[in-house]
Design a protein around this nucleic acid. Structure first.
Lengths: 213, 213
DNA sequence: GACATCTGACAGGGACGTCTGTCAGTTTTG
DNA sequence: CAAAACTGACAGACGTCCCTGTCAGATGTC
């Protein structure tokens, strides 16, 4: 009956890990499981039960990290998104060639992540709008990616590039359109090799974001 | 017990209409109801029961026209797609200005259909990938639209335009990207007026499909 | 070593949608 | 007018998933 007042108690360690560490690790396993299922079986079959089974955890721990299925799905999409954004920005920083070279480096990093882990590719390019909650998140992500692309293009291409709202709109078309192309390419429906997909994206970005000469 | 052999019988008229006419009219009502619900409530709430209620028909007639919910959903998407494709091609034929003018006429027709009937806009730009069956259909449609765009661009811009697979890939990026932009615009998330959206599309199409000079 | 906490397995209620079947009433044909 | 076809309303079985709750066993702390 008496509930020990443990609101702020850090909990005790278990298996050498603190309560917060264990919870974080479980959440990570659940997100990874969600990405795997979402990218292979698709949204409809990515049920809470299936995610728990894939992660080797039970339903109770699902609710420890997420309020419901939608939260896990959007968390998975978010994780993939931040991963490829980080990869792209890191590649830009690591490259020191021409603007086009740096664009190719960024797109190459994106394409490589998505193709070496097909599940992530499917999550980002196909299943990202399979659900009302996912669609809402996807829209925000497209806008955000477009901003990143516009900003980076502006700093890479300098005076040759637009800035402002118009550049953002063009960048949005590029982001959504290129995602579609990469999705088809991952499905094997586009007869190009890796470098050609990257070059195509770089050419298109230049055509779309640059000021007409 | 005895089943009269009525395999090829045309059925009898009812309400002045033949069996085939009645069935076709019911199917049309069901497709229209599906478009309405899909474009307003979204895919998840577009249940078979809801579609029947919206169409003023009962479940039995649903199965007369469709094998299941997915078939009705894809039929709705197909109906919207052919409508805007027809509108775009008719606008190109009716226009006799410059290539850019004719492109604007085509895009204007598309934008007008989607904005005067918001449900159709949502079906095409948002809900078109809300479901595995819809996604499959959408992919085919994007490829088909891209072919149409590439073919038309080639004949409109002549030597200035690519042709072949490369043009198809660029057109695919344009189709999917512009769909995303129009979707956001329909949602009120893009601060442009109707003509600006059309001009933006025309500029992008020219930039994307034309040979670099 | 006793007690509290954590963990994993699993059962089952509740909600929702699909799909089939029945039945009474209406319209057409012979 | 009678028989046959058509129509609309509705009930209910079936399956699936979400979510809660219980219980035994493992792992900590005191």
């Amino acid at each position: 009956m008496v509930q020990p007042d443990q609101q702020d108690q850090p909990g005790r360690s278990y298996g050498g890990r603190s309560k917060a560490e264990r919870a974080a690790e479980r959440r990570e396993r659940l997100v990874a499981a969600t990405i795997t299922l979402l990218g292979t079986l698709g949204e409809a079959r990515t049920t809470m039960t299936a995610v728990c089974a894939e992660a080797g955890l039970t339903e109770r721990y699902f609710y420890e990290s997420f309020r419901g299925r939608d939260e896990a799905l959007t968390a998975a999409l978010g994780a993939v998104s931040t991963e490829i954004a980080d990869a792209a920005l890191a590649a830009v920083r690591a490259s020191d060639g021409s603007p086009q070279d740096r664009v190719r480096a960024a797109l190459g990093a994106v394409v490589d992540v998505l193709s070496t882990t097909p599940a992530k590719g499917r999550v980002l390019t196909r299943e990202s709008s399979a659900n009302a909650a996912l669609r809402e998140r996807r829209q925000a992500l497209v806008g955000w990616f477009a901003d990143v692309v516009a900003t980076q293009s502006s700093s890479l291409f300098g005076d040759q590039a637009w800035s402002g709202a118009r550049a953002g709109h063009h960048a949005m078309v590029f982001v959504a359109g290129y995602a579609e192309l990469v999705g088809s390419w991952l499905d094997g429906d586009v007869a190009l090799d890796r470098d050609q997909v990257v070059d195509l994206g770089a050419d298109l970005l230049a055509a779309v974001v640059r000021r007409p000469t």
